[in-house]
Each structure stands twice: as C-alpha cells, then as structure tokens.
Simulated assay, not measured.
Amino acid sequence: MSGICDGRVVVITGAGRGLGRAHALAFAAEGARVVVNDLDVRLDGRRPGAGAEGDGDGTSAEGGRTGRDGAAARVVAEIRAAGGEAVAHTGDVAGTEGAASLIRTALDAYGRLDTLVNNAGFLRDRMLVNLDEDDWDAVMRVHLKGHFLPLRHAAAHWRAETKAGRTPVARVVNTSSGAGLLGSLGQANYSAAKAGIAGLTLVAAAELARYGVQVNAIAPAARTRMTEHTFAETMAAPATAGFDAMAPSNVSPLVVWLGSAAAAGVTGRVFETEAGRITVMEGWHPGPTADKGARWSPAEAGEAVRELLAEARAPERVYGTR
C-alpha cells in the first residue's frame, strides 16, 4: 500500500459491516488510525431481539452490542490483527450526545481528527401509500440527522483549530445514493434522505472551506445487507477473472483518496461509484429557458413549458421503473 493516509485519524460511522467495514479496513491499510463506529442494529435499525413494534428502533445511545461480540469491536480486532490502530465507538450518531462522543473518542484516543466518513444507515422500505410516519422519521433520522450531527461536531472542532492558528487539512465523505439522485420505487423515505445528504454536502463544502475542510459525497453500489434484494441478480453472478464487481471494497479506494490530503482542491462533488467505475455526477443545471419579461397567463405558461420540454433532455428514469 502507498500509505496515502499515514498519520491521519479517520472516523467512520456504520463501520461494523458492509461498506463502512470495507472503508475502515482500507483506511487502516493506508496508514490511518481509525475510529470504528457502529450501533450494531438490524437492517431496519432495530436492536437484535426487538419486534417490529417493540423497543429498539436504533435511536438509543445505549443500543447495540457493545462488548467483544459487537460489530465495531470485531472490525477493530481485524485492523489490529493486521498491524493497524483502531478504537471502537458504539454510540448513536443520530443523537447529539452520541455524535459529540464520537468526535471526543478520536481526540481522546489520538489527539486529532482529520477525516469523517458518514456512512451509517438502515432501510424501512414501503410503497408510499403504505409508508407510515415512524418509518419515515426513523430513516430520515439515521441518514440525514446521522450525517448532520457528526459533521456539525467535527466542523466545530476544525473551526476551533483554525481560530487557534492550526488550519487543518480536513476531509468529509458523505454517503448519498443513486436513490437520492434519481429516486427509487418503494424508497420514498430513503430517497428523500439521500437527496438531502447531497444538498447538505454542497452547503457544507461552501461553508467549511474557510476552515480547511473539503466535503464530498459518494453514491455507491455494492453488495451489502441493505442491497441484497436490489442487486440480487448481479450479486448471484460469478466473479469475472477474479474480480467481484459488487464487493464493497471496490468503493473504498475512492473514499480513501477523498479522505486523504491528496484530494486537495476537490470539494462539493458527488461521485457515483461501483465495481471499477467512477462517475462525476453533475446535478441540477439550468436547461432551456423562456422569459416573457412580464407575468404569464396560465395558458401562456403551459404553452411555454411544453415548448421548453420539447427542447430539454429527458430525465433519467426512477430506479424500479426501468
């Protein structure tokens, strides 16, 4: 390995499995000291043993298994066994105290913080007419609030460092999704949260640049317990020439680079990544425009819109409608 992250301290949320675990191992392999956060809950965010209506919605700072059998502890053990440095954090990063303690853990253990990777999340998929308020709130909380709070506490630390004359070379990598960029049937809550993360990334990149912080997002596709139904056919396909296209570890090199000092000047971007492919997503850009210079009547506005749509590029189709 190149040691592209030698000396850096990296915090990763939701790092007990899937993409987060792959990121943690990849950062450690490149010389980073890693804080591995995981609440160790089920796919729907509930704690093991909790019923669908029972306690354990993933919101408790005390939730999950915090002992030697916990997901975060297992990843820490993997990193240490390979000669790296890591500590576990099992708090709820979508709560104020859990997010604050996450940043304190990095500072207490290693005396610094260089990179934050926001990755934690879960699914509660329903078609819109069957989606209840609790499932909406829980998914919005873990994805959107679970990005905002760690970012806020990390940014406060980096701002303080800058004011003390120690401007950091700080990096944030957020986790959006193709569902957030294009929409996905049966995932209104998840799509809305992931779209919000893309917007949060743009604002954070603009606001935090003065403190030496770069903020980017990825929209990854890989084999995890969250995607096993979405990518069932792809995941069942055998690896080609030894390359497992859906392995989470394929996504991590981009995340490691974005989290390193080598990514200088790259900020406010969203990258779609899967297998061996990286795409810069270009987001909303103004298309055809009509300006009357005065107020439209409804009929005139409608006629103008139809003419503009005839000139405009057709939108990408929502996932699940292709």
Rank of each mutant, 00 (worst) to 15 (best):
E274C: 08
A310E: 11
G302W: 05
L309S: 07
G320N: 02
E303K: 11
T279I: 13
A312T: 05
P315S: 09
I278K: 01
G287I: 03
T279E: 14
E303Q: 13
E272D: 13
Y319H: 10
P298G: 03
A312L: 09
E274H: 12
A304W: 03
G268Q: 05
P288V: 10
G293D: 10
A312M: 08
R317A: 03
H285N: 12
G276W: 02
T273Y: 05
D291S: 15
G283E: 11
V318H: 01
E303S: 13
E311T: 02
V280E: 14
A290H: 15
H285C: 06
R269P: 02
F271G: 02
L309A: 12
D291M: 10
H285W: 07
E303C: 06
G283I: 08
A299P: 03
L308N: 05
A299V: 12
A290S: 12
Y319R: 10
F271T: 06
W296H: 12
A301L: 13
A304Y: 01
P315N: 09
K292V: 08
R295L: 15
G320Q: 03
A314I: 00
E274G: 10
G268V: 01
G302H: 07
F271S: 04
Y319P: 02
W296F: 14
E272Q: 14
K292R: 15
R317K: 11
V280W: 11
I278N: 04
L309H: 07
S297W: 06
A299T: 13
K292T: 04
V318I: 15
P315Q: 08
V305T: 14
G276D: 14
M281N: 10
G276N: 15
G320V: 00
T273M: 06
G293F: 04
F271V: 02
E307A: 15
I278V: 15
W284T: 07
E311H: 03
E282M: 12
V270R: 07
L309F: 09
W296D: 13
R306D: 11
G320M: 01
P288C: 11
R306F: 06
G293Q: 11
G268T: 03
E316R: 00
F271M: 07
V318A: 04
A275S: 14
R306E: 12
R317W: 00
G287H: 02
R317V: 02
Y319V: 05
T279H: 10
V270G: 06
P288N: 07
G276Y: 01
P315E: 08
G287E: 01
A304P: 01
L309N: 09
E274I: 04
P315D: 08
A290F: 12
A310Q: 01
G287K: 02
G287S: 05
I278R: 11
A299Q: 14
R313V: 11
E307N: 06
E316P: 00
V270M: 08
S297C: 07
A314M: 10
A314C: 03
L308E: 08
G287C: 05
W296M: 12
G287Q: 05
M281C: 12
T289G: 03
K292E: 13
E282I: 06
P286Y: 08
K292H: 11
G283T: 08
R277H: 09
A310K: 06
G268N: 02
T273W: 02
R277I: 05
P286K: 11
